[in-house]
C-alpha cells in the first residue's frame, strides 16, 4: 500500500473504488493514478458491465470522445447504459479526450450533429456527464465522485473479499434481479444466512443490500415468484434488471 502523505479530508479516511477486471488493461493509468495520487483503494473485480463503481449506488463508465461521436458504437453504448440504469440509481459517463502518441499532432475534435444528439439523449435520460482531458483527470474525477458519495453516506463500506459460504451466497445474490456486485457484497455481509435474506421483508432487504425501495421490491417479488416450470424449455436465463 502506498503511503499517503496528506491526511484524508473526510473523517472516515480512505474511499474505495471498484474497477472492472475487463477494463484493467485499458484503465491501468487511471488505476495507478487513483492509488498513488488520490489515495483511493482501487479494488479490481469482475463487475456488471461497467468500468468503475464508486459507491453503493453509482456506476461510472469511461468513454472516449471519438467512441461517443461514432455511430458504430451506438448499439453497445445503449446496451451498457440501459443495463447500468437497471442496476444503479446513478450512472456517470466520463467522456475522455483522445490520447495522442508522442510526436503526433493532436487533431481537433470534430463535433458532429450525431455527437450532439447523443449528448442530448444521455442528458435527457438522466446520465451524468463529465469531461476529462486524460487518464489523470479521469482518476481525479473518480476520486471526487467517490468522496462526494462518501459525504452522502453512500460509500462502499463493505469488505471486498468474501470467502467460503459467503462466496457461494454472493454468486446466488448476483443472480437476483437489480442486484449489482456491490449490492451482493452488502447482502453477503448484512444477512447471517441465505435463508435470513430470502425471508426478509422489503425494508430489511433495502437496508441490508443498500438499494432503493423499487429494487428491493423487485428482489422480494422474485424470491416469492411462483415459477411455472412448463414454460421453461430453454433455460437461457439472462440476468435481468429493473
Amino acid at each position: 500500500v502506498a503511503a499517503v502523505s496528506e491526511p484524508p479530508a473526510s473523517s472516515s479516511g480512505l474511499v474505495s473504488v471498484l474497477v472492472d477486471s475487463r477494463c484493467i488493461t485499458a484503465c491501468v493509468d487511471v488505476v495507478s493514478s487513483l492509488r498513488h495520487r488520490h489515495g483511493v483503494t482501487a479494488h479490481v473485480c469482475s463487475l456488471d458491465g461497467c468500468d468503475f463503481v464508486v459507491s453503493d449506488r453509482m456506476a461510472v463508465e469511461r468513454q472516449s470522445q471519438s467512441e461517443l461521436a461514432g455511430a458504430q458504437n451506438r448499439k453497445r453504448l445503449v446496451e451498457r447504459v440501459t443495463s447500468l440504469q437497471g442496476l444503479f440509481d446513478r450512472v456517470c459517463l466520463i467522456i475522455e479526450k483522445e490520447r495522442t502518441k508522442p510526436g503526433e499532432v493532436s487533431r481537433p475534435f470534430q463535433r458532429t450533429r450525431y455527437y450532439d444528439s447523443t449528448l442530448a439523449s444521455l442528458v435527457r435520460a438522466g446520465i451524468r456527464l463529465l469531461e476529462s482531458a486524460g487518464p489523470d483527470e479521469s482518476a481525479a474525477l473518480l476520486a471526487e465522485l467517490a468522496r462526494l458519495e462518501q459525504r452522502k453516506g453512500q460509500a462502499i463500506s463493505v469488505p471486498l473479499e468474501v470467502k467460503g459460504l459467503r462466496q457461494q451466497a454472493l454468486v446466488f445474490y448476483r443472480t437476483l434481479p437489480c442486484v449489482s456486485y456491490v449490492n451482493a457484497l452488502n447482502m453477503a455481509q448484512s444477512f447471517r444466512s441465505v435463508s435470513h435474506l430470502v425471508n426478509s421483508p422489503v425494508e430489511a432487504l433495502q437496508k441490508g443490500a443498500c438499494l432503493s425501495q423499487a429494487r428491493a421490491e423487485e428482489i422480494y417479488r422474485s424470491l416469492r415468484y411462483a415459477c411455472d416450470i412448463t414454460l421453461m424449455n430453454t433455460s437461457t436465463a439472462r440476468k435481468n434488471s429493473l
Binding site: 415468484y225 436465463a237 439472462r238 435481468n240
Partner: peptide
C-alpha cells in the same frame, strides 16, 4: 421472472 428463478436455483 421464470428464467430468473430457474437460474437462481441452479446457483
Amino acid at each position: 421472472l421464470d428464467p430468473v428463478v430457474m437460474s437462481l436455483v441452479q446457483q
